[in-house]
């Protein structure tokens, strides 16, 4: 039986350059739903990205910038993009060549439906 988020992750992974898409619990970093290519360590990405997003949210709030929406981490060998609600976040693992602008719009739209 698939979760209500399966269509979302299956849609996101169809983007060129996307290696994995997950819905993750913001507080515990555990995967709620995922669609991953072979070899992608979903558990590690879920836990660490949720932690980074929490940190950004707390820091931005403390700096007086208000609530955090989209976040993108660019590294030497790939990117991680995320956006979320109060309880869940969507996490996308991708290659450098991904269209970030398009992905950002999709993630922000998806985040509107997350609790």
């Amino acid at each position: 039986m698939s979760s209500p988020f399966a269509p979302l992750t299956e849609s996101l992974i169809r983007h060129r350059g996307v290696l994995g898409a997950m819905v993750v619990g913001l507080d515990d970093g555990l995967i709620v739903e995922s669609t991953l290519q072979v070899g992608v360590n979903g558990n590690a990405f879920a836990a660490l990205t949720a932690s980074l997003y929490r940190k950004a949210r707390r820091s931005a709030g403390a700096a007086g910038f208000g609530a955090t929406g989209f976040l993108e981490l660019t590294a030497e060998q790939g990117r991680v993009c995320t956006a979320g609600g109060q309880e869940l976040v969507v996490v996308v693992v991708c290659e450098q060549r991904v269209n970030v602008g398009l992905l950002r719009v999709e993630l922000l739209r998806a985040a509107e439906h997350l609790p």
Binding site: A60, G69, F70, E72
Partner: peptide, 8 residues
């Protein structure tokens, strides 16, 4: 290499 995020 880079982190970007959007807030309110």
């Amino acid at each position: 290499r880079q982190i970007v995020f959007e807030t309110e």
